[in-house]
Write a protein that binds this DNA or RNA. Structure first.
Length: 940
RNA sequence: AGUCGCGUAGCUCAGUGGUAGAGCACCUCCUUGACAUGGAGGUGGUCGGUGGUUCGAUCCCACUCGCGACUACCA
């Protein structure tokens, strides 16, 4: 084995072996456990957020697989309608081709080609991350089976009256030329203006001032509304206004929607271009005048001179003409929320079109109830509030998109505009008895991407067929995802799953935080702070990193800033850390309901941990040899018993943590056990046994066996989190421990109960640790070289009258139990403390000038002759005394409060009394020692 | 405007009604045969502020300051 763990060498080889052996597939035995992957965009790449979520999913998957569950992690990708179409359009544009230059079929063909070309990226990344998904079941939302599920769902919902087509206002993207759902709208506060316009009264007796943020829409006004209570305008209600720039007369209506305190208290009503106005229009049966083309230029319904103008040009011209006509009262600065498309960032228009909608209330109700009843549980729990909040105010879902890439809506039209929904044209003709002579054309729209995503947990398992997989793996066990798609995805899976499967799609929903950069900013390409998870794994030099971050920017002018920041943050690029270190970092940082500021130093720490584990394995193999210890008489040392006991406790902690999705606790339990107990103490404690000529063969045998057993079992415990290094070490450790098997990933997860708890061993080792710690503190405090062997003396608190004078003379008042311990553990104490001897201070002999440590009743004296600086010892003691006094006083104060003594639970009071006594003893001893050192110093 | 979070060591974060924790950073010492990606020891915090409940509050409650996220129709 190499001295330093080199992840790169082994990770690919190991994954290849796992995959080619088909070990990721469900075993077909045991309880079903399943996770459906949140399908990433097929043409995208995985970012840190994916890597984070995948780590948690893989950890759960590997753990349950090892527990013997029939475990499926279902992989797949999403066609991501708008996002993918935009990418391909951009590529075409770069070649000077417009999408509309191609036929729909040609364009879709190109998208499929792009998918084939780029679609492997994600799967490649997942393999590097160690994701143990069942590749044989890989799915794509546009593949045949899933498309069938989409059509089936649409048709059934339509049959049940839960899908309808209607002409309404939708959020229209004038760049993409498609409708969007409410969720795809991102409103941002922007600086704008509030224009106060004068609308002349019909009789010429004056004018009414209306305030608007969108003057260009005035060409489509069909009324002006005031509040019915508004004294100023009450007499005008029912009258008419002459709409400037047009020849139309529009009514003044009363509606309580109008807030008299805002603007002028009079609102122009444009039912075809504003959601509120639309509703007012419905209430008052106002005509709707659409003044925009789909690209948001002015259409034929406005005066000729405005026709064809872009909306923002039209705005300027409208304002100018009104101003010239003396109809512009004033312009106020005004902040307003501007709706923008989440993909194009273009300003959206409320626009009147025919679209397909899912009637959502009947679907939402059971989905709310399922969470209320705890059939699906959010972790952390407070996300259920966000879910409820949205579900209770949910509006119908516009599912049609005017795109080319996606699932075509299964609806056909005849030439009279009749609409027929069915699974295909044949079915439609049969069902509605439409003769072959009648021409039918299919709806040209596609469905919202999230429509197919909503079916994911069961469509991937073969629905609408009744498959054995559905029976076995639905509902899935847990969904791991980010809060940002609770509405987009989680809620919709709940609604559809309950409707079509009659049960929730997942038992638990674990919501992860967001991975942010080291400054707490969201990672995004445009900010140039994105980290590719594989760059952390493999490392990347600074030039390559800068190139990566500054290429293909939407705003190339940002490149210089991005380069500067990148060079500052990563002067030498990133070192390779390996997948296991990255995974460990994600788990350790996965505290509930908290975003993660990603810190590369943390990964380096866990890379060191990998190296530590690696070297522990080296040590074990050097100590044990290359084969399992031959059978023979075996004696387990106190350390051997102790490490098993501690391992048992750690496993319990780990499993409890994982049950509650506390990946951070689970990781910490593994880390602390491995480093602080197994490496720091157990391996050290084996040395006195193994490297001594006096220890028995049986004892050596027991230690060898324990070393092999623990190393092997530890790999299994660590495997779900660190799959690669544990596989590599396990291959070496398994034979030593006499365990057979081809791979650690299919071995049973170690059970806490297999390793006996041993309270006695834990007590003994605790005592040994404090003894050694005491010596080390003196050594360090007194600046004694580690290589210098010390001869320590002991004294106890027993008096001659208690022990008999002879015994006292020989033992220095050290209690029998301490003496027994010292004898029993002498090799440990001498070796780990760097001691040459441990002898009781002979009674009567005056104690030499020493530094001391207290272990309960036992005092360890390190003679100072030639070693120790008395001043340093005085300083050390003074410091210790001060600290002990503070601790004592704090408790003394508490105990002095009679209410505390009266009201606190007796065990708390008793415990404090005990502690104070302990502090008093320590203090007395420290003070005596201080006095001694002082007086001896005086003698010098 | 409403809803939900967050404020603990220099930094990033755990945590508990009863002795404040980790990683990184920092200081001192150490190339001792697993590991310098290491070992040993150490420094460092009136737990955002004020008030209340309690024998006791970093934790529970109220108010307050600061930060963030989400939702929403103010023309």
């Amino acid at each position: 084995m190499d001295k330093v763990y080199a992840p790169h060498e082994i990770e690919r080889r190991i994954y290849e072996r796992w995959e080619s052996n088909g070990w990721f597939a469900p075993s077909g035995k045991g309880t079903g456990y399943s996770i459906a992957i949140p399908p990433p965009n097929v043409t995208g790449t995985l970012h840190m957020g994916h890597a984070f979520q995948h780590t948690l999913m893989d950890m759960l998957t590997r753990y349950h697989r090892m527990r013997g569950d029939d475990t499926l992690w279902q992989p797949g990708t999403d066609h991501a309608g708008i996002a993918t179409q935009m990418v391909v359009e951009r590529q075409l544009n770069a070649q000077g081709i417009k999408r509309t230059d191609l036929t729909r079929e040609d364009f879709v063909e190109r998208v499929w080609k792009w998918k084939a070309q780029s679609g492997g990226t994600i799967n490649g990344q997942m393999r590097r991350l160690g994701d143990s998904v069942d590749w044989s079941r890989d799915r794509f939302t546009m593949d045949e089976g899933l498309s069938k599920a989409v059509v089936e769902t649409f048709v059934r919902l339509h049959e049940e009256g839960l899908i309808y087509r209607g002409k309404r206002l939708v959020n229209w993207d004038p760049v993409l030329l498609t409708a969007l759902s409410d969720l795809e709208v991102e409103s941002e506060e922007e600086e704008g203006s509030l224009w106060h316009l004068r609308y002349p009264l019909e009789d010429g007796s004056g004018h009414l001032v209306v305030a608007t943020t969108r003057p260009e829409t005035m060409l489509g006004d069909t009324a002006v509304a005031v509040n019915p209570e508004d004294e100023r305008y009450i007499k005008l209600i029912g009258g008419k206004l002459r709409l400037p720039l047009t020849d139309r007369l529009i009514p003044i209506i009363a509606d309580t929607y109008v807030d008299p305190a805002f603007g002028s208290g009079a609102v122009k009503i444009t039912p075809a271009h504003d959601f509120n106005d639309y509703e007012i229009g419905q209430r008052h049966e106002l005509p709707m005048i659409n003044v925009f083309t789909p690209r948001a230029a002015m259409n034929e319904n406005v005066p000729t001179r405005f026709q064809g103008l872009d909306r923002f040009e039209a705005r300027k011209q409208v304002v100018r003409e009104l101003d010239e006509a003396g109809l512009l009262e004033r312009i106020d600065k005004h902040k307003l929320m501007v709706p923008r498309g989440d993909r194009t960032n273009s300003v959206l228009e409320p626009y009147l079109t025919d679209q397909w909608y899912v009637k959502i209330a009947p679907l939402a109700e059971p989905a709310i109830k399922a969470v209320e009843d705890g059939r699906t549980r959010f972790v952390p729990e407070n996300y259920s509030k966000i879910y409820f909040e949205w579900m209770r105010n949910i509006k119908d879902w516009c599912v049609s998109r005017q795109l080319w890439w996606g699932h075509r809506i299964p609806a056909w039209y005849d030439e009279q505009g009749g609409v027929f929904v069915g699974r295909d044209e044949l079915e439609v003709r049969a069902k509605f008895e439409i003769p072959a002579s009648t021409k039918l054309t299919q709806d040209t729209d596609v469905l919202d991407t999230w429509f197919s995503s909503a079916l994911w947990p069961y469509s991937t398992l073969g629905w609408p067929e009744k498959t054995s997989e559905l029976a076995r793996f639905y509902p899935t066990s847990v969904l791991v995802t980010g809060f940002d798609i609770i509405f987009f995805w989680v809620a919709r899976m709940m609604m559809f799953g309950l409707r079509f499967m009659g049960d929730v799609p997942f038992r638990d929903v674990y919501i992860t935080g967001l991975i942010r950069d080291e400054l707490g900013d969201k990672m995004s390409k445009s900010k140039g702070n994105v980290i590719d998870p594989l760059d952390i794994v493999d490392g990347i030099d600074i030039e390559a990193l800068v190139a990566k971050r500054t290429s293909g920017l939407m705003q190339p002018q940002m490149a210089a800033t991005i380069e500067k920041n990148t060079r500052k943050q990563y002067p030498t690029g990133m070192a390779p850390h390996g997948t296991d270190a990255l995974r460990f970092t994600f788990a350790a940082l996965a505290s509930p309901s908290r975003d993660i500021r990603f810190d590369l130093a943390r990964v380096a720490g866990y890379r060191n941990f990998c190296n530590k584990l690696w070297n522990a394995a080296r040590f074990v193999s050097m100590t044990v040899g290359e084969t399992a210890p031959a059978p023979g008489p075996t004696e387990l040392s106190v350390a051997d018993r102790w490490i098993r006991s501690r391992f048992s406790r750690m496993l319990e902690q780990f499993e409890n943590a994982l049950r509650e999705y506390r990946f951070d606790f689970a990781a910490t339990a593994l880390y602390e056990f491995t480093w602080y107990e197994f490496c720091d103490w157990y391996l050290e404690l084996t040395k006195p046994v193994m490297q001594s000529e006096t220890s028995s063969e049986a004892a050596k045998h027991g230690t060898r066996q324990t070393l092999a057993e623990m190393l092997e079992a530890l790999q299994r415990a660590l495997h779900p989190l660190m799959p690669f290094i544990t596989e590599e070490i396990w291959q070496l450790a398994a034979p030593l421990a006499g365990r057979k098997g081809e791979t650690v990933m299919l071995q049973p997860f170690p059970a806490s109960g297999e390793y006996p708890r041993d309270a006695d061993a834990e007590r003994e080792i605790e005592w040994i640790r404090s003894f050694i710690l005491g010596v080390r503190q003196i050594r360090s405090g007194m600046d004694i070289a580690p290589s210098k062997k010390l001869a320590v003396l002991l004294s106890g608190t027993l008096a001659a009258t208690e022990t008999g004078s002879d015994t006292f003379a020989a033992t220095g008042g050290v209690s029998a139990s301490d003496r027994a311990r010292i004898e029993k553990h002498r090799p440990y104490l001498e070796r780990l403390g760097g001691l040459e001897s441990i002898t009781p201070l002979v009674a009567g002999a005056s104690a030499p000038q020493s530094a001391t440590a207290l272990i309960g009743e036992l005092t360890i004296l390190v003679p100072m002759a030639g070693l120790i600086d008395a001043d340093a010892e005085i300083e050390r003691l003074t410091k210790k005394i001060e600290k002990t006094r503070l601790d004592r006083d704090k408790i003394a104060k508490k105990l002095a409060n009679e209410n505390f003594v009266k009201n606190a639970p007796p065990e708390v009071v008793a415990q404090d009394r005990e502690r104070i006594a302990e502090f008093e003893r320590t203090l007395a001893s420290l003070e005596a020692q201080l006095a001694r050192v002082r007086s001896l110093k005086g003698d010098q």
